[in-house]
Design a protein around this nucleic acid. Structure first.
Length: 212
DNA sequence: AACCAGGAGACAT
DNA sequence: ATGTCTCATGGT
């Protein structure tokens, strides 16, 4: 007698359950697309509360603009984004992204795979940040694979590939089959992160209980 | 007071 | 292709 692993909880069901128990309005606040881009760099491995300090500093100096940010000295930029950590690296990354934005005014016309490659060519934009931008700036229905998604989906019984790229593609496929559109992907990512934080204290059993 | 957060690049293997 | 190391502040 072989004990079979139960069918993983369908994406739709996970989404519905998260939506029911995790209060969330808008996951990625921002007054402009550029602010979302800046936030995407600053929040790399960093708590969002720290990013908010840095964003406020940049706004107070009227730097929430690619050209203005490029014209700002690296020394001052480092000082303004200091609360977000990794400030030396992130200052460079921000300027790299500004250069890319100004050099690619028609980026939104590119198909998603090409746009993704172009974003990844920027030093400081890795796979997850690229997906953040595709989803929250360019409105593409991409599934954002991060450590929270891995933990939750493995807990739900999914066999998540080890490599980032393999996992990303597999889960994108699942999300596509489930028919998630851009708005739903945007919400799902937030729900997964928030849900993952709760699970640290409450565990997964309640949320991911198998279907009857 | 260790631990971690809305990751990515550099480098060795 | 797949592992380590480093980067850094602020909240718990």
């Amino acid at each position: 007698m072989v004990s079979l692993r139960p069918m993983p909880l369908p994406f739709r069901e996970i989404f519905t359950r998260l939506e029911a128990r995790v209060p969330m309005e808008v996951w990625w606040p921002g007054e402009s697309d550029f602010e979302i881009m800046v936030g995407a760099i600053l929040t790399q491995n960093t708590a969002w509360t720290n990013v908010e300090y840095a964003l406020a500093n940049l706004k107070s100096e009227n730097l929430m603009d690619p050209q203005a940010l490029l014209d700002c000295s690296t020394e001052q930029l480092v000082e303004l984004i200091r609360p977000a950590g990794y400030f030396n690296a992130k200052a460079k990354y921000l300027k790299n992204l500004c250069t890319w934005v100004l050099a690619n005014p028609n980026a939104a016309d590119l198909p998603t795979p090409e746009l993704r490659k172009s974003l990844l060519s920027v030093a400081g934009v890795g796979p997850e940040t690229a997906d953040d931008l595709l989803l929250y700036v360019y409105q593409r229905p991409v599934f954002i694979f991060d450590t929270y998604a891995r933990r939750m989906l493995e807990a739900a019984g999914y066999d998540v590939p080890k490599s980032y790229e393999g996992a990303r593609q597999a889960l994108q496929h699942h999300a596509d089959l489930a028919g998630f559109d851009t708005a739903q992907q945007a919400k799902l990512h937030g729900l997964i992160v928030d849900g993952g934080k709760r699970a640290r204290t409450e565990g997964w059993q309640d949320l991911l209980a198998p279907l009857p």
